[in-house]
């Protein structure tokens, strides 16, 4: 490699720029977290100081745990995210397999039809979705959210997974057919395990928008027992605007699960994006 690309001055400037932006990216999270452990007085006197022995308090967390039903909200978010992801992956993989594997009339058209939803946001249809959920009695149930997120995730899932399924070797599938395996067995036993990395990519792509969505929980399931964590923290913080300890603690508690998920899946996510899945 040439010297021009390895200039120490350049490398210093690169690190300086990256460190500066990293600080900008993490600063708000840091400020919220440290202040959630401080007394009200300390929050205002020196917002940037770390909590110390005499300024440390958990009063905000106590208020949050007493007033808000955060465990229920968390559970709701978990159920909605996990079930929607499972359905997106299962239905998406099945449809992707059909499109990638079989030649049938209208294959192209079906692919295009399913791809429409990649660019058109599902929110545009909200009025009619709400009407449908009301008339089918699904409003204020977690099923309303699960169905919407499944529909929302399918287009991109089918698109990405069918790209990957085209790469699975035909010989393998044909060998299975000669051994008398049914098409279903070939799909579940032979093909699915081979596209597992692509499935993980799709899962990670869908997980964040589902977990963080505010619009559909607000419209389809605002009841106390179906609130998701995102909606729950929104409502809670709205009610406790003047209780800074509670607000900061609620924010920290909302940050925590996403951060844990991110730490677990960040490699998968970044590999998914950089592998050129979105082309």
């Amino acid at each position: 490699m040439s010297k021009a690309r390895n200039n120490p001055l350049n490398s210093f400037a690169a690190h300086a720029a990256l460190i500066a932006y990293t600080l900008i990216a993490l600063f708000p999270v840091f400020v919220i977290l440290i202040n959630s452990f401080k007394t009200r007085k300390a929050i205002f006197r020196d917002p940037l100081a770390l909590p110390e022995a005499d300024t440390f308090t958990l009063i905000g967390y106590q208020t949050v745990l007493k007033q808000g039903d955060f465990f229920l909200y968390f559970q709701n978010s978990m159920i909605v995210t996990v079930v929607s992801l499972t359905l997106v992956l299962l239905f998406g993989a099945m449809a992707a397999f059909a499109l990638a594997e079989y030649k049938f009339k209208g294959n192209m058209l079906m692919g295009l039809y399913l791809a429409l939803g990649i660019m058109i946001p599902i929110r545009i249809g909200t009025v009619a979705i709400l009407e449908m959920m009301v008339s089918s009695g699904l409003v204020n149930t977690l099923w309303a959210l699960i169905l919407v997120y499944t529909a929302q995730g399918l287009p991109l899932a089918v698109f990405i997974l069918s790209e990957f399924m085209r790469q699975v070797s035909d010989d393998l599938k044909n060998a299975g057919r000669i051994d008398g395996l049914s098409e279903y067995t070939i799909f579940f036993r032979l093909v699915l395990p081979l596209v597992r990395p692509a499935m993980a990519t799709v899962a990670v792509f869908n997980m964040i928008p589902i977990w963080n969505d505010l619009w559909f929980p607000l419209i389809l399931a605002p009841a106390e027992e179906t609130k998701t964590l995102t909606l729950g923290s929104q409502v809670f913080i709205g009610q406790f605007v003047t209780d800074w300890n509670a607000v900061l603690s609620a924010l920290s508690m909302a940050i925590l699960p996403v951060m844990i998920l991110y730490v677990i899946f960040s490699r998968q996510l970044i590999r998914g994006i950089t592998s050129g899945a979105v082309k």
Binding site: F91, M94, I122, I124, V127, L154, E183
Partner: peptide, 22 residues
């Protein structure tokens, strides 16, 4: 048909149909 049905049904019923209905 079995492979395509679930995705196409959910997608059509929850996304495409409400879009045009709106």
């Amino acid at each position: 048909i079995v492979f395509l049905a679930p995705a196409v049904l959910v997608y059509t019923a929850i996304m495409i149909f409400p879009l045009f209905n709106t």
